[in-house]
Design a protein around this nucleic acid. Structure first.
Length: 377
RNA sequence: GUGGGUAUAGCUCAGUUGGUUAGAGCGCCAGAUUGUGGCUCUGGAGGCCGUCGGUUCGAAUCCGACUAUCCACC
């Protein structure tokens, strides 16, 4: 693995990361396909067309179904879903806390009940690494605890320290797994995750300990969980000076186009978010002219595409009126077209961000786009 | 034509022994959604209670006629 910064505009960075599954140009948005498929009937075949560089899948979900051992038997995630480019697997830490009603956390790990059938499952740092090794993703995420917002200082501190101990165990386990003969991807990379809730000192303390471990990348987790956006930006600014310059930075689960523009400005390279795909399934679309609700009555006889400046499969072929009709009729094609559009928009936005960085005009670019992307169509 | 049933929101229907500004679900209109349970949540608009008349302090509710509609039988 190598990561190179090609250009800097203030804190914002234009970079290139080389992996065993190909090159990733940063800043990048990773397209979320939790269960090895993008929701909305979107396959790996479509991902190329909408400009996806990295696909993101989930340890927790794939462990429960079909089971990581089955994926390994099938030759790993890449072969299983027919996607040759980089894949990042989320560790499952977030899902353990967001999806399972019942869970018990200890130093060893977490006991939780499956959201599918309720059976009890244990997952700790070693289990998460083993699952991700079986999935054979390009990048594995460390197993962490995502603390709820708001959190008390004491809880956030204890949890953050435990996350660091878990990270050490993740690193050791990955080294062991990558040296085994039957491991599919022996060059699997590991990103650590910064925690500490909304407390600047905890975030910084955590980052100092995390960077000691010399990881392949550094993520900021536990944000965009209900705190105001200004708090999120403030935490990024607090942590950024302590993150290694020569390694990729990943802001987990973020966010709106505005959030991404602001975070790139503050030095973040990787993003992922369910927002473009989930909102697409509910008719909430992102366009160059702002946010559009395709279900609004005013689009009933609108013959124009969703976004007249867009070249996605939906905009090249279909009208607002037609897509609105598909939604009203609960036709799956409506979701598919809208998911394709929103992901195309996000990937194109990242491409435009990289172009602006290349041309040393990011600051003006992001201010102009932030204004446009937050208005309504 | 005869007998019986029904008539309340765009649709399907609740509505206590008659008692304030008549409700629900769906639909419609609008908003939310941030390391995904194809969800879920939050607001809003919308009714001359088929029509006319009667009983009553008071009628969606009781009575009569009419109209529409459904079922059965001629």
């Amino acid at each position: 693995m190598s990561f190179k910064i090609i250009k800097e505009n203030g804190s914002a960075r234009l970079g290139v990361m080389e992996t065993v599954h190909g090159v990733i140009k940063t800043p990048v948005f990773m397209n979320v396909g939790t269960i090895a498929a993008i929701k909305g009937a979107v396959s790996a075949l479509d991902l190329e067309e909408i400009g996806c560089q990295v696909e993101l899948s989930n340890t927790y979900h794939l462990h429960l179904r079909p089971g990581d051992k089955i994926v390994k038997t099938m030759g790993g995630l890449h072969k299983f879903m027919n996607w040759k480019r980089p894949i990042l697997t989320d560790s499952g830490g977030f899902q353990v806390f967001s999806l399972s009603g019942m869970r018990k956390i200890s130093e060893e790990g977490v006991v939780f009940s499956s959201h599918i059938d309720g059976r009890k499952i244990f997952m700790g740092p070693e289990e998460s690494m083993q699952i991700q090794s079986n999935l054979a993703s390009t990048i594995a995420m460390a197993f962490d605890e995502c603390v709820e917002n708001p959190a008390t200082y004491e809880y956030a501190k204890n949890s953050m320290e435990r996350t660091v101990r878990w990270l050490r165990r993740c690193k050791a386990e990955m080294a062991r797994l990558n040296s085994l003969p039957d491991t599919i991807n022996k060059k699997q990379l590991l990103f650590g995750i910064n925690q500490g809730a909304t407390f600047r000192d905890l975030r910084i303390e955590n980052m100092k300990m995390t960077r000691e471990m010399d990881l392949d990348g550094y993520a900021i987790g536990g944000l965009a969980v209900g705190e105001p956006a200004e708090v999120m930006y403030d935490i990024i600014e607090a942590v950024e000076p302590y993150m290694p310059k020569d390694k990729p930075r990943y802001l987990m689960g973020v966010g709106t186009p505005e959030n991404i523009l602001e975070a790139v400005y503050r030095g973040v390279d990787f993003f992922d978010c369910v927002m473009p795909s989930r909102n697409a399934r509910h008719g909430h679309l992102f366009t160059e002219d702002g946010i559009m609700h395709i279900l609004n009555a005013k689009f009933e006889t609108d013959d124009r595409p969703i976004d007249e400046s867009c070249s996605c499969p939906a905009c090249r072929n279909f009208s607002r009126a037609y897509i609105r009709h598909l939604f009203k009729a609960k036709e799956m094609l409506a979701m598919r077209l809208c998911v394709l559009h929103n992901l195309y928009f996000y990937n194109k936005m990242m491409e435009n961000i990289r172009l602006a960085l290349e041309e040393d005009r990011y600051e003006a670019f992001y201010k102009e786009k932030t204004k446009k992307y937050t208005q309504r169509v």
